[in-house]
Structures are given as structure tokens and as C-alpha cells.
Write a protein that binds this DNA or RNA. Structure first.
Length: 179
DNA sequence: CATTCGATCGGG
DNA sequence: CCGATCGAATGA
């Protein structure tokens, strides 16, 4: 009988490049507007590696917005993009070594902006722990996906030729979920 | 302060 | 291809 539905903190204290593919197939859980628990199956993630990663908010050092990335792993990092869309990330790695996994899509909802909108997730979750107490949490996969694909991250051309092409996006073999 | 710029999306 | 839309970052 499997009783360990939740990940240990140590799972997220690893490099985001390891955590991002390992989260594929796991359940993104939240309470909807009516207080009903919903679970979405994560199908696409991206890894933002560290201060060296020019595509990461952390590459320019600590700021008000990105300070959570420098904190302990296993906390949500939310920020708004293009003035409209909330982007959902989970902090990974050790303290003072900023990295995160970005949630790009689930089997049910494709696209990072549509994902948070459908979940009703926004800034109010910024800095909260990945825990049922926060009403936003991850649970281990029911079935681990077999063929994981990887390729360049989306929308990071400004990171330059090296970092924009790093294969830090991961998805199921049944296809990437592009917005 | 003033200006620029997005880890996007939906509509032509 | 392009405009929406606004908080945060950057620079004067």
C-alpha cells in the first residue's frame, strides 16, 4: 500500500534539470472556486538552472521579484508575464542557489498562462509551500510516463544563442503542449 | 520619475 | 503577424 503521496523536500533540493523531467506525470492539485479538489497531470515542464542561466530571472542577481528563487526549495514562485498571465514555478535546489521548475502544461490544459487561469492561481500563492495546507500541491504520479522528450525552452530567445537553445524543456512522448 | 520589456495568448 | 496589458527592471 503506497502511502507516500507527497514528495520529500529532498526531492526538490536537487538541480531543476533533474527535478523537471521527474515531475512529468505527477499531479498538480488545487482547490477550485467551489472548494473541490482538482488534480491535473503535468505533461510539460521547463528547468531554470541557476545564476548562470541567462534565461532565468536569477541571472541578473537578486531582485524583489525573484528573491524567492534564492530561498528554500519546495516553495511556489508566481510572477505575472505580459501584464496578463500568471506563471507558476516551484523553487528547487539549495538555498542561495536560485533555480526553479516552470510548469508549462498539463494533459488537461496547454500553456502556462491558461493553466494558472483555469486553476485560479495567482500572486496569492507566491511564496507558499508546496503543501495541501497551501491548497496548491504536487502528488506523485499514478503512472510514470515512459518516453520523455526534451528540447529548447519556449520564449527565451533573449537569453542568447547558448542558453536559449539548452534542452531544458521536457514533455511526454505523446507530444509537447504548445499554447 | 520615464521608459522599456517580457518564461503569453488569441485573433487576423 | 500583431496588439493587449501592467508589474518590475532599468536608467536618467
Amino acid at each position: 500500500m503506497e502511502t507516500h503521496f507527497w514528495f520529500d523536500d529532498s526531492f526538490f533540493e536537487r538541480p531543476s534539470i533533474e527535478v523537471a523531467p521527474d515531475l512529468l506525470g505527477s499531479q498538480l492539485c488545487f482547490w477550485d472556486r467551489r472548494g473541490v479538489i482538482r488534480k491535473l497531470t503535468i505533461s510539460e515542464t521547463e528547468a531554470y538552472h541557476g545564476s548562470d542561466d541567462l534565461a532565468s530571472h536569477a541571472s541578473k542577481g537578486r531582485t524583489l521579484r525573484n528573491s524567492l528563487m534564492f530561498g528554500p526549495a519546495n516553495h511556489w514562485y508566481l510572477y505575472i508575464c505580459y501584464g496578463v498571465h500568471w506563471m507558476l514555478n516551484l523553487v528547487t535546489g539549495p538555498i542561495d542557489q536560485p533555480s526553479a521548475v516552470f510548469f508549462r502544461g498539463t494533459l488537461e490544459v496547454s500553456g502556462p498562462g491558461k493553466l494558472t487561469k483555469s486553476m485560479g492561481v495567482n500572486k496569492q500563492f507566491n511564496g507558499l509551500m508546496n503543501s495541501p495546507v497551501s491548497k496548491l500541491w504536487l502528488e506523485k504520479p499514478v503512472a510514470i510516463p515512459k518516453e520523455i522528450q526534451r528540447g529548447p525552452r519556449i520564449g527565451v530567445d533573449s537569453a542568447g544563442p547558448i542558453w536559449s537553445k539548452k534542452p531544458y524543456r521536457f514533455w511526454f512522448s505523446n507530444g509537447p503542449t504548445l499554447g
